[in-house]
Design a protein around this nucleic acid. Structure first.
Lengths: 358, 358
DNA sequence: CTTAGCACTCTAGCTCCCTGAGTGCTAAAG
DNA sequence: CTTTAGCACTCAGGGAGCTAGAGTGCTAAG
């Protein structure tokens, strides 16, 4: 059966009502809408059709209808109004971001926090490595007779450091030669490509008897392996305010999944695409998300990193609004991450290009 | 009224039973204990006394008794057996710590995680600054014509870095002179002591027209201000498995408090003492914790940092066990943080010095 | 001082019932 | 053919009433 225009209007009304009330929607409620010049009986007939088509569901005979995942899908793909951020909303976001953004390092956490505060849903932010992760350059700074700071400049443009202490003392000369050896032999290699034979060789070359080379190599490996990929969660307890998670068990399962699972990290755009993706209920791969909705935005970050920022909520979530927020913020993140240091927040403007002159 | 030996035994039995069942304890249940050669009627009389003394409470007339906060206090101070970690427990902890401890940086998070996994209560770990926080030394590494990495060695022995980009290019000479100027003029100062006049003066001295000095100074200030103090939470969703937090509202409030509030950070040992502290119900300052229990351990960390690791749970929490875990782990953290790099986990032994030869 | 016995209290959980929202179907009206 | 009014039917949710059981406090006897 094809979706008539009228059915579409009814479906849209049902989804939107359900999104805001979380209660099954009855025919009368829809008929009450002044835009809908139909009696409740007619609506009932249409609703019966929509149910037969699998777009609506009935919790039980005498309850109203709620949208099925397929129903949401149609809503998201075809019916949903683009949520245009109002000037106030963008100002709100800009204000929130500006206050928080201090360093690229905490950018993730802050973005997640902003999103979760704006949407009242839990949000997560993460980065993933898309290419090789290697050291581009080593710098060793000798602080005193037994302390050396190693600074690793990674290929993605970030730097890491570690204070290394050698209680027996370490020769200035050794430090310098070690820098040379590592810059020559340990750059442009991934963690996997560094093996113990190389480390032993370096030790021999250096005449290193205090394990300095081994320490530096192990720092290198752990830095590369930690993979720059981080995950930050915010606002998880917001779940508990939602009617669908009044069941403690359900809430617990989802929270655990969010805090623990690294499956979130595998959920990203296919082949590094960018943009906003919406996953409804069973469309999610993870079992724990089968009756939740996920909206996520992917954006490029630094050289070969990718950032993902996402929101998890009940299936009935305000997809239009959340998607708009995410895409806006992802855009901002991208700009900031490309900006110079200290990161200056670019003046983000509302996404719409229309005249804001009302 | 003085606490007779018998009353103490009965109080202890009640607290312990309540800790494990979370149900009000009746006289019969206590009388059933073979160690307690008394009839339920006698116990009832004693319980009535204990209630009059304010050590027990009655949810309603025909329910059993539960310990009052004062009752817990007496239990914790006088009655509780030191929980001696068994060999298995320490092995378990050692195994868990060893697996996770990689870098001092993530040490906190890992310790919290271990604790929350072991206790099934939410745990938090944080560090606070106890003394002045200043830069001890600046190192500027020029990577290419427009990129400089600034490495700040702080007075507490940690190092921070930041990649600074100057799109218009930056002179080698300027970088070098800036290092000299900052090492001379910006070390041993707290964030508050650096003012804009100083920055302008440095800019003039350097003939800096691209804001390099301002960027470095602002990095310095934000580093010093961020105060090395971090907070990491783990296992918050564990709350939801506990009977006292089946009420979603209660759980939500506490979770929010844990995630948001920085009041946790103000809860530490008076004047930098070390050791394990137990706060029961209303003994907590924060309103949100008035009917929870908190166990926290404080330990020195680095030069003038202090680490705190704590567990939050229902008032009825197994204080003996949690306190034992925390003090053990805090000891380990202290050792690790004083160790050389890469941090090697010292082989922690059970706290008891008695022969483990069963 | 301890204990057995008893009357009393109070909650948790059960059933029963009713209400109200919502449905599907039918027949009449447009 | 479509829309609508009307009606019988279904079912979850909530309140009232009841019971069982756990626990208490008191008294009187050992």
């Amino acid at each position: 059966m094809e979706l008539s225009e009228r059915k579409r209007r009814i479906l849209k009304a049902i989804v939107e009502q359900y999104i805001s009330t979380a209660e099954p929607v009855g025919s009368k409620a829809i008929a009450a809408d002044p835009e809908m010049n139909l009696s409740s009986a007619t609506i009932r007939n249409e609703m019966a059709d929509l149910t037969a088509m699998g777009l609506l569901e009935q919790p039980h005979t005498s309850a109203g209808r709620i949208p099925s995942p397929q129903g949401y899908r149609i809503y998201v793909n075809e019916l949903m109004n683009e949520h245009r951020l109002s000037l106030e909303e963008t100002q709100e976001i800009n204000r929130a971001l500006k206050q928080k953004m201090s360093q690229l390092d905490s950018l993730l956490a802050d973005a997640g926090k902003v999103v979760s505060e704006l949407t009242s849903y839990p949000a997560y932010a993460l980065t993933t490595q898309v290419g090789r992760r290697t050291v581009q350059r080593y710098d060793l700074i000798q602080v005193d007779g037994e302390t050396v700071i190693a600074v690793l400049l990674l290929e993605d443009g970030t730097a890491c450091n570690r204070v290394m202490k050698f209680p027996g003392g370490i020769e200035k000369d050794l430090v310098q030669r070690m820098g040379t050896v590592f810059n020559a032999g340990f750059t442009n290699l991934t963690a996997q490509e560094i093996d113990s034979a190389m480390i032993r060789a370096a030790e021999r070359t250096l005449g290193d008897e205090i394990g300095a080379a081994a320490a530096l190599a192990s720092f290198t490996i752990s830095t590369l392996e930690s993979g720059g990929s981080k995950k930050v969660l915010s606002g998880v307890s917001n779940l508990l305010t939602l009617p669908e998670y009044q069941d403690v068990n359900k809430a617990h399962k989802l929270m655990d999944f969010l805090a623990e699972g690294n499956e979130l990290e595998q959920m990203e755009m296919p082949q590094g695409q960018e943009g906003v993706q919406i996953l409804i209920g069973p469309e999610n791969v993870a079992e724990e998300l089968k009756d939740s909705g996920v909206v996520l935005a992917t954006y490029p970050l630094g050289n070969n990193m990718q950032g993902v920022i996402g929101v998890v909520g009940p299936t009935r979530m305000d997809y239009a609004k959340v998607a708009a927020y995410l895409s806006y913020i992802a855009g901002g993140m991208q700009q900031i991450s490309q900006g110079t240091s200290p990161p200056q927040l670019p003046e983000l403007r509302p996404m719409d290009d229309q005249d804001e002159s009302r």
